[in-house]
Amino acid sequence: MWKRDEAVRQPAQPAVPTNEAAATAPAAAAQPVRQDTYRSQNARDVVNIGKSVVIKGELNGSEDLTIEGHVEGKIELRDHVLTIGPNGKIKAELFAKAVVVLGEVIGNVSATEKVDIRENGSVEGDITSPRVAIAEGAHFRGSVDMAQKAKQVSSGPRPAEVKSQPAPQPVMQQPQQAQKVG
């Protein structure tokens, strides 16, 4: 009998990872998956804008944001990461700490840390960021301004030392001998 009871009860328990959550929220047990997703998103402080969402106007925020929908206007997440998902279509000026593009962006992109255009990502506009990565297979049309980094370096405590450091170079073969033309 004891064994049979256990077998009946087990499937009825919510599929949440912690015992604490199961004990404190009997109502939440009705929608365990949704609750779990919400909790994990909150933990990472990431908000998603879904595929079917269309936003026209200005978007400001103070948490990481992933956009899968359409946005026209301006997006500003000064201290956070903005991710344009594979389904995201953006016609806007973007300002963020870091911008990751897997979808389509038409408009200028400014990041205080990094802009990362992944494979199949597309950007048509000017990028301003100290670090820029454009993956093979990405589409980019515009200009890249990485001058910030140089400015930061030159305003550092010992500019002379920084200047004198040789730039890192990958290991390479010695060049072939060349003849000087005329």
Binding site: A133, I134, A135, R141, S143, V144, M146, K149, A167
Partner: peptide
């Protein structure tokens, strides 16, 4: 054509603005 590693190399090396006109 756009080569991501060139953009990174030139940008970090020269701290420049790079206009890409393919």
């Amino acid at each position: 054509p756009v080569v991501g590693s060139n953009v990174t190399f030139l940008g970090e090396r020269l701290g420049c603005k790079i206009i890409l006109e393919d």
